[in-house]
Each structure stands twice: as structure tokens, then as C-alpha cells.
């Protein structure tokens, strides 16, 4: 006996799919790596333009030698209380500098990147902002990227 009552019936429930993997193997040891920070946490220089909190697919450059006191967050998608107390809890710029000084990593990138993730124009992020940020990092010749987001 057949259990099919209606042919071609499809579920109305969206089933999430995980996109195919991208993978770049690590070829250097940590003490040979120049590391950049990239955050979706809306971090930027206080002197720079703030993000539009309702949605913004632009990004900001953050100098590798920037002082943590010169940084701030504008992000409409999470509680900013912790990051306003100490930017390092979302953007560990002082910690990464310390690790470079100790020789745990070779160095800190000359430019880090901040953008405002958590939604907005996903097509613009995927097609424009993502490749632009990646291009900046390639140009700087960084060996690895440490991200905070999600």
C-alpha cells in the first residue's frame, strides 16, 4: 500500500542548510604569524564615523597600534555594557599586542577591521563588504585573522 496521499507535497518548515566549507590550511607556526583582528562588534576609532545602528554594511579601519582608549563601539544588535567598560572584551587589541611583544605571535597587523554584523544587508556583506575586507587583509600580507562575532 502507498502512503502518499498528495504527490509533490513539500514541507513548509524551512530547513537550515550549512554552506559548503572554505578552508585554508595553516602553514606557519604562531611565532611566525602576523595576526589581524576582525570584529563584527561595531568597533571603530572614536574619531571615525559611527555605524548606522539600524543597519550598516560599511567597515572601519583600526590602526594596529591604536590605543584601546581611542576606540568605541556603535552597534545596535547587542548589549554594549561590557564593551563600554573595556573594549578588549570584544576587541582584544591590548591582549594581542602583549602576545606579540612576548613573541607568542610574530606581530600585529598594521590595520584591523571593525564592522557592524548581526544582520542588515546580507547581500551587500557577502558580495561587497566581505571581499573588500578580505582584500585589505591580503594586501597587508597578514598570516592569520582572529575574529570576534556571533
Amino acid at each position: 500500500m502507498s502512503f502518499t496521499v498528495v504527490r509533490g507535497l513539500q514541507s513548509e518548515i524551512f530547513i537550515p542548510t550549512i554552506p559548503p566549507a572554505f578552508w585554508t590550511p595553516v602553514s606557519k607556526s604562531l611565532n611566525e604569524m602576523v595576526v589581524a583582528l576582525v570584529t563584527a562588534g561595531g568597533v571603530h576609532l572614536k574619531s571615525d564615523k559611527t555605524f548606522r545602528l539600524a543597519g550598516d554594511s560599511s567597515y572601519r579601519r583600526i590602526p594596529g597600534d591604536a590605543k584601546s582608549d581611542d576606540l568605541m563601539v556603535s552597534h545596535g544588535g547587542y548589549d554594549n555594557t561590557d564593551v563600554n567598560k573595556d573594549i578588549n572584551c570584544m576587541f582584544p587589541i591590548d591582549r594581542i599586542k602583549e602576545l606579540a611583544k612576548e613573541g607568542f605571535i610574530k606581530g600585529v597587523a598594521s590595520t584591523h577591521i571593525g564592522f557592524m554584523g548581526g544582520g542588515g544587508n546580507i547581500a551587500a556583506f557577502t558580495e561587497i563588504t566581505g571581499p573588500e575586507i578580505a582584500g585589505e587583509l591580503v594586501e597587508q600580507n597578514v598570516d592569520a585573522v582572529l575574529m570576534t562575532a556571533g
Binding site: 566549507a21 590550511p25 575586507i133 592569520a144 575574529m147 556571533g150
Partner: peptide
């Protein structure tokens, strides 16, 4: 974003507060 960077040949790692979201988005 992480995928875009990884695609250009730079290895990446993300510190996630919401690991399931990160998994869903295909973080390397």
C-alpha cells in the same frame, strides 16, 4: 565574513558567544 577572508587564503578563527549560529553560517 570569516568565509570571505578564508577564501582568499588567510586562515581564520572566530571567538563565538553563539556557537550554533557560527556553525550554521559555515565558519571554518
Amino acid at each position: 565574513m570569516q568565509r570571505a577572508i578564508e577564501e582568499t587564503g588567510i586562515p581564520t578563527i572566530i571567538i563565538a558567544a553563539l556557537p550554533l549560529v557560527v556553525k550554521q553560517n559555515g565558519a571554518p
